[in-house]
Design a protein around this nucleic acid. Sequence first.
DNA 1: AAGAGGGTTGGTTTA
DNA 2: ATAAACCAACCCTCT
Length: 628
Amino acid sequence: MATGPRVIYWFRTDLRLHDSPALAAALALDPAVLWPIFTWDPHYVYRARGGLNRWQFLLDCQNDLSESITKLNSRSKLFVLREGPQTLFPKLFKAWKVTHLVFEKDTDAYARERDEVVMRAASEAGVEVIVKSGRTLWDSDAVVAKHGGKPTMSISQLQTAGAKVGPIAKPIPAPQSLPNPGEMPVDFGQTPPETEPDFNAEQRTEGDAAYAKIAGPEGDFAIETMEELGFPPASTPHRGGETRALGMLEEILADKKYTATFEKPKTSPAAFEPQSTTFMSPFLHFGALSVREFYWRVRAVVDAYGKGASKVPESLLGQLLFRDMYFAAHAALGYSFTQTANNPYCRFIPWHLPSKVDAKTGLVTGEYHVDSTQADEWFRRWKYGVTGFPWIDALMRQLREEGWIHHLGRHSVACFLTRGGCYIDWERGCEVFEEWLLDHEPACNAGNWQWLSCTAFFSQYFRCYSPVSFGQKWDKQGAYVRRWVPELKDLDAKYIYEPWKAPLPDQKKAGVRVTGRGETQERGVYPKPMFDFNERRTACLAAMKKAYEVGLHGNDDKVLDGSWRKLFAGQDTEMMDEFESDQGERADHAEDDHPAVKAEPTGDEITPAKRSADEGSAEQHADKKQKF
DNA sequence: AAGAGGGTTGGTTTA
DNA sequence: ATAAACCAACCCTCT
């Protein structure tokens, strides 16, 4: 056996060979053997929401990386072990006689906990751990330290703190060779994963064999397949991998004008095939593209372009700064950054469908209270793209099928679900994005939902996206809507954003009937709008004004113990209805009150009569509130 | 210290 | 057709 360091390089969200400070540090050890491994972590398989499209994208990234590793050393590849890292590593350290464990830092709240456990085990086993920052422009922990331990809540704060950390590191070239892997005995017992609760059970339709054997079905540490995971095929046309990412980057950079003059607010959310933005975000998420490689390559084009180049924050480089801002905010706050409860920086708004919070841990459980069956119906119609507003429905359908929509499209649907329509908790939308986005990043997703819902980062709640006008501004003829809502593809452009206004002869001519509430899959039927948007906008605006006046934040005692309701007493605006513990009380009034909002188990069957009774007028809600 | 100005990305009406 | 003014008015930073 060769002497020298016996190194595990643990790949996680850094599925690349180029510009990897952690991989460079591993190779600098001059290892006698180096095992590039990936551990199949039950947390992501069962406890985090992950849609088929993102699983496919991950597998693409792993396969591409593995091939690239094999090109550098025909005896090596990405070795995948099917067990949680917390239990696996202590066994690997012994069985493989490991001297060093090297990985890239991950500041995600779960990742930190996981890595703490692994590092403790390494310390007990006498294994040296090397962790290098490589996922962001600046080490997020260093940014936080230079920002007084506080989360970065604006671009200027991030820039100021970043400047104190130092210049953004220049990218490191990919290695030219890799050491051989050592022997890989796995004659120890496999610790079975916790499979309950399983947030992804619904999509696991083909029989879960993810953990059947620690080294995979053939015992060769192969990369998983969708079949092995129990998943049907993904629907997205977008494919992952470092090779693809670097190829796409070259194409972007080749268009110097596009790269240098990019202004995010001027890129169209209605553009498709191709989209108007770079589509680099899913690759950044999995680390298939280094953000510093992206930054410095763009920077070179911008610097050479000279006058006329766009500026931070609208520019391409500005977009990368936002990403670092959210990462540093998350690094500072941990789990509380991705929820309202116990988050001092997140405004409390009494939205419908609030998260259930575990009283012991203070963390959201992944379930929510149905305080209003009407709101729950709106939420489902929003999620599945049958709101009756074509612009919103097109976006949600593209998101579901492809795992990606333009940033401004995300603004539209997020505003619509929260402060500009449904008045539903941003955490509900955040969870749907978590499931469906290829580029889902816990920090960026939560941060952007807070931004759009005006609970943090942004507060001009009177700037409200119209589900009609905003789409029209970008796409008068409605090509985007026709692509994603084919029921409407032949409708006159006059009505494409408001099909309910189309006279019957026009509907007939276009082969569509605008009717119902999206409950049917029938061809040639498109639902009526689920509410009068202008009415809802007015109600939401008034409610936001009230919530801002009350001025509570997620960590306020009154929020955590429920006594916040007193501060909203007697007001006449939209807000969270009573639920559960309050239910005995509300039952007393239920008979003579408003039947449509009576607490019912998941009301799929809301009659039209009920619906009109509950159709969210502020007066009705006021009436109801005063009784309590 | 009060007030102006800025804040990646609104909508509608009027000139 | 484009641009400015208005809508009703948020928070934070800077001077």
